[in-house]
Write a protein that binds this DNA or RNA. Structure first.
Lengths: 197, 197
DNA sequence: TTGACAACAGAACGAACGTTCTTTATAGTG
DNA sequence: CACTATAAAGAACGTTCGTTCTGTTGTCAA
């Protein structure tokens, strides 16, 4: 078995292009066309090398699947200490898939556009998109989407005199003390902001 | 053939969760386990309905693949007017793909982890991930990643007496007045935050 | 010019896969 | 109770898949 060589880079990009189109890694027979070769066994050798290089992996069933590295978005790190900028260290080898980072359980995750500035001190602005994992329990200190009197609100969950309360992150808004029922709709697990360009 | 019914929603969720883990749609046999049923033919019936509902499709080879709708998640809208919560309108039919929303030009986009709190008043916290589109020009008012004296920093671009300056969004930090060269590395186009769970 | 190795091609084979058809269980309805 | 639709189980079958083994071609160096 030979090592991953520059020629395999070409095969990798062909595979990436196919995957971008079809969102799946096809059979060896179809990969012969994709790679422009005629030998299934050689396709297997190529995929094995790509696998050893960390771009693809296999399921317990033996099916080839892309890894994080396959989607390859470089993650750099800007170190700004005490306001004085230090260099961006291009963290080689570290990769990052946005959807995967933000969403663990797709079926339980909802996105909610935030309206209002009642959480502005927590860095949550009007128009931001909140990533909310639907569940009925939360911990003190979590930012939650709560259902109070049949209405939804995004606040920090806290406790006062043994009762749950909902704290805004803006002194201009009052603490919500739900008398009676407090239902949790979900917990804030992520935040997305888009700047107009 | 029956219509897509509420029970299929459960099967769809299972499939989405499996796909989130393995990035592939497995064989009917494995889907029996995933769905918790014992019949391959019924799995096929389910997938056919999911296909007719637009969540999955097939390649020319017959392999099942996810569609855009498969990844898209519902975008709800929480209207919080003047701090008083109003109901979440579950915007039916509106979908949202995070990667696609945040990244227009993948090849020019870099992700940078933010360190420090010099932009905290702009709602950019320590540990947030900045989505940066690499380009050398920017407009006044844009939040930019600038290269000052061979160092990188995230600040708002402004102008003072005909000279470019970099404003932090935190009164505790000084305005940076680069004497001489000011290079723009890129422009902030998005922001991602992950809350620990 | 020969040897060695990398880069494929091709065939053979058993296992797994998708498809189709038939049968069974469950739930609702009149 | 019988009838009907839905939800699933199960078997049977031809095709395709991945795997393995062997054969061929090209290239470069000694």
């Amino acid at each position: 078995m030979t090592d991953f060589n520059p020629k395999d880079t070409e095969y990798l990009s062909r595979l990436q292009d196919y995957y971008a189109d079809w969102k799946s890694i096809p059979s060896y027979a179809r990969l012969c066309e994709v790679f422009g070769i005629a030998s299934k066994s050689w396709v297997k050798a190529i995929l094995t090398r790509l696998g050893e290089a960390g771009f693809i992996d296999r399921t317990p069933d033996g099916a080839w699947i892309p890894t994080r590295q396959f989607f390859a978005r470089p993650l750099a790190e800007s170190t700004v200490q005490a306001g004085m900028p230090v260099s961006v260290t291009d963290t080689q080898g570290e990769y990052f898939v946005i959807d995967e980072m933000l969403i663990d359980t797709p079926s339980k995750t909802t996105l909610i556009t935030v309206k209002g500035d009642s959480m502005i001190d927590a860095g949550i602005h009007d128009g931001d998109v909140a990533v909310v994992e639907k569940r009925m329990t939360a911990n003190i200190g979590d930012i939650v989407v709560a259902i109070v009197d049949d209405d939804f609100t995004l606040k920090t969950l806290d406790r006062e005199n043994g009762e749950f309360i909902l704290r805004p992150a803006n002194p201009a808004y009052p603490v919500i003390r739900p008398h009676g029922k407090l239902e949790i709709f979900g917990v804030l697990t992520g935040l997305i902001r888009k700047y107009r360009r």
